[in-house]
Amino acid sequence: MLKNHEKELMISINLFLDNILKINNLFKTLLQKYFDQKFDDVQKVTDQISNLESECDALRRDVERRIYSETLIPEIRGDVLGMLENLDKIPGQIQGNAHSFNTEKPKVDAELDKNFLKLCDYASECISLLIEGARSFFTDKNITIAKCLEVSRVESKADKISTELKKTIFTNSENGLATKVHLKYFVEIMDEVANLSEDVADRLIISSSKN
């Protein structure tokens, strides 16, 4: 009739959030290995990211099923499920980015390496802040709001780097248009991680203010 599921659920949710952080860190490693041209390692990291992403999906589905079947937290169920589903888009995006680097192997000029890593750092910071905010959503909504507002600030920095990267790519006269468009695509998919984080953070701010 009445079971205490909170411990199991919080463990699952924390595991889900930890996995997103792990994927986030792995992508940074992947990028570094890619620029060092260690393609075997890139393959390994991509596989690791894929496995963790599948684990995230399974955890999210399990948590959602349990919240619904046990009719838990009725008043904020929609917000929690929305948050989990939106957060799950981030590992999906990172997994896609990892596969793109692994399969398409874009020709990144040495002068772009630094800014690519910087963009990755900002996107990664956005995710870390978002995960902290998401974790606090279950205990202290004021912290959630503060962290999510910080996500927007960092995302702006990511946008600036992204614009700078695109400018550098298109001002390079040595590369052909195909290479330029190809590199621009990689800048955009990396920036997309920061954009997704900002979108989820915005939703979280609304959910936290509402509750």
Binding site: L2, E6, L72, V80, F138, T139, D140
Partner: peptide, 17 residues
């Protein structure tokens, strides 16, 4: 008590009954 939302949910269920 700094309970999370699932703990609060559980305590409220028990209390309501």
């Amino acid at each position: 008590l700094r309970l999370n939302i699932f703990q609060i949910d559980y305590q409220i269920r028990l209390a309501l009954i």
